[in-house]
Write a protein that binds this DNA or RNA. Structure first.
Lengths: 252, 252
DNA sequence: GCCAAAAGTTCCATAGAATGGAACTTTTGT
DNA sequence: ACAAAAGTTCCATTCTATGGAACTTTTGGC
């Protein structure tokens, strides 16, 4: 009873009309523009970014502002408002599993692991970093909670792709192992390993990941941490009410 | 026209018509209901909570779901979706902190303070000068925006260390006071005082600091400026959406 | 396992809300 | 000081969001 359908932004072809409310779609376009923007935006910025008339943006913003989702500064620019924080806090409160994942991540890091994080699928070709605890080693990579990352980079991306839709058959080995590790040679200088987490009905929920400088991801290091990260992922799965399956289940 | 008013306790009253977009207002009412709810909500729950017809809620949710702001579980209940988490992360990321802090720093300096600056934690054992406004007095010290500084020097470093990880228990007094001032005798010839700034959830965000020649940091001068810098820090905290806590906080 | 009640979903004519764009005011930049 | 860009107001027209009926599915009592 925990399967999630959060809707996917992309719809292959002709995604526009999906029976929602158009005015709301437009307001959320404005929110998206503000979310993506590098900083406070002018009315004209938003008009250009969304393709809506300035007058329309102004009207939509009026409603968003009343709810605190948009803030306007004294210089006239717009940005996300404190209301989105309240929302974020509510999200945390409503998803208490995050607390448990935090405990698991902290445990790994305090045992001396590389930086630990949890990533969930986001749409069909990306993932989102839901939580992250920096390692006690150096911490200079730029990944933070909320970051959207591609699936074609790193073991974590690979693991999520292996359980994605449509399934990448080339990744069947990864899917069976429920684990992936960077082979090491990557010009980025970073490496990672990840173990799969499942919810009820065996539904894939995300990846528990350790990441750090590639130079530290030796075969020995990977062998040492693999059982621990797999075990940690298993604990999260159990906490989520998921079943541990050594074999893959065909359908939910 | 007839609202299904089943007695909605929240929303108080004056949600007067402020010239926004009604459909958006309604969608945000649904968001508010989800935010306030103790757990996943049924369609009927939301219909009752918002006073909207079920069919209307369904349509609004369709749009909210497409944006990821609302998720639907396999048991049919609705809750906030991962999109709000992204939003929260975006808010944190593009915090307009600098714009507002610049105003505050300028105000302090134009009131005759020593050079004013804002420092944020950088890693676990250093801080970064995020902004700086030179005083109208003399003295050019060499600290500039972007400089990385240690935590073992000055009141500002001490304050940031007091809220750092791991916590330095010897600095509990500083943490409680949310304020620190150089005691004066320092062979460097420089002194400073600093007040803590917090963001949402009481998270420590950095220190507002005044710094200058030690010779000018007399007890009387510190007493004179302490309330002003504390008040300025408080204003920044409020602007950041943080809460002012007069009582001591056990965690930060 | 059956039935009644509640919840969820689909559909449509119509009211009225949202729209585009023109006109106007304010701010910015040179 | 001036021109150009940004921001704001306003309104007739259009098209969308709406209420509510009808229908399907799920829940729960017995």
């Amino acid at each position: 009873m925990d399967k999630i359908d959060a809707g996917s932004p992309e719809k292959s072809s002709g995604d526009s009309d999906k029976g929602g409310v158009k005015a709301v779609d437009r307001a959320l376009m404005v929110m998206g523009a503000l979310e993506r923007a590098p900083g406070p935006q002018t009315l004209t910025d938003l008009s250009v970014a969304t393709g809506l008339y300035k007058s329309a943006v102004l009207r939509l913003i009026e409603s968003l502002k009343n709810a605190g989702y948009v803030a306007r500064f004294s210089n006239g620019k717009y940005s996300l408002g404190p209301g989105v924080f309240r929302l974020g806090a509510a999200y945390e409160r409503l998803n208490p599993i995050r607390e448990y994942i935090g405990v698991v991540l902290n445990n790994l890091v305090s045992e001396g692991s590389e930086s630990a994080s949890f990533h969930a699928p986001e749409g069909t070709d990306s993932r989102i970093c839901m939580m992250r605890v920096d390692s006690h080693h150096s911490t200079l990579d730029r990944i933070a909670e909320g970051d959207i990352l591609p699936l074609d980079r790193g073991a974590t991306g690979q693991l999520i792709a292996a359980f994605g839709t449509p399934k990448d058959e080339r990744l069947e080995e990864v899917r069976i192992a429920q684990f992936a590790a960077s082979v090491g040679i990557d010009d980025s200088g970073w490496a990672d390993m990840a173990a799969a987490v499942f919810g009820p009905n065996g539904k894939f929920r995300g990846a528990l990941s350790l990441s750090g400088p590639a130079v530290r991801f030796t075969d020995a290091m990977i062998d040492r941490w693999r059982p621990r990260i797999i075990n940690a992922a298993r604990n999260i799965t159990l906490e989520l009410g998921g079943q541990i399956s050594s074999t893959r289940r065909p359908k939910a």
